[in-house]
Simulated scan of single mutants.
Amino acid sequence: MKTSTTSTTYEVILKTAYRLFAEHGFDKASMAIIAKEIGISKPALYYHFKSKEAIIDVLFDEICKSVTFANFFSIKQYSKDNFEEKLIADGLSIIQSQTEDEHYSRIMHQYQALGYRNPKYMQKLIESLDGFTTGFHELLRHGVSIGAIKDGDTLAHAQMLTMIIDGVDNFMTYGFQYRYDKIWAKTVKAIVRGE
């Protein structure tokens, strides 16, 4: 989670909580620990957030906004000449962002675990993945319409791309050193080339 160089106290709280939740989990990272880490009093922390649950909620909304399909893929930028190359590059940018943020995978697993207990988190996670499936489906249909890819089962291919993006995140969390870039590129090439 990135903040500007002139971060407000509110942003510093979110950034610090993001790291502490990833490192220690939601249960162990208390409001007192967050306040101490930032160097503010607990009342000052409560001025910005009425509870730890409020921080968890706001963080989740911010994370979900930052990982939408549209933040990584712009259908308007895809042409017949660049389709395969661009789809590979845009997918790799997601993988790269997951690699660069050492806390992302761990905090997302916290939210997944929370989703099993609280349906509102599970629903938001499902909506996020559905957004990728819908986005990939539109992108692949665009590819068919401009002659960049062969007509095929674009929905199944969109679901496959979504599963790979989600799977990469999960496997990174467990520490697998797979060749994610090659897996993504091979999948895209197989879809685009109709292999």
Rank of each mutant, 00 (worst) to 15 (best):
P43T: 07
A32W: 09
E127A: 13
E100Y: 05
Q112P: 00
H109N: 14
A32R: 15
I55P: 03
I55E: 07
A29D: 02
N82T: 04
K52A: 02
R19C: 02
K15Y: 06
E23C: 04
L87R: 11
F73W: 10
E100H: 07
A32P: 04
R117T: 03
S51F: 14
K50P: 02
Q110K: 06
K124I: 01
F60G: 13
R106W: 03
M108S: 13
S93Q: 15
I107G: 10
E102K: 11
T99D: 08
S93V: 04
N71I: 00
A29Y: 06
E11D: 14
I34D: 03
I126W: 08
F73S: 00
A32F: 12
T16K: 05
Q96C: 06
D81P: 01
L129P: 03
S128R: 09
P119I: 04
S30T: 15
N118P: 03
Q112V: 10
K120M: 12
S51C: 08
I75V: 14
S4N: 15
S97I: 03
A29F: 04
L129W: 11
Y104D: 00
K28T: 03
K124Q: 12
K65S: 11
F21N: 02
S97A: 14
I95F: 10
F83M: 07
S41C: 12
K80P: 00
E37A: 14
A22V: 03
Y104P: 06
Y121E: 11
S30Q: 08
D101R: 05
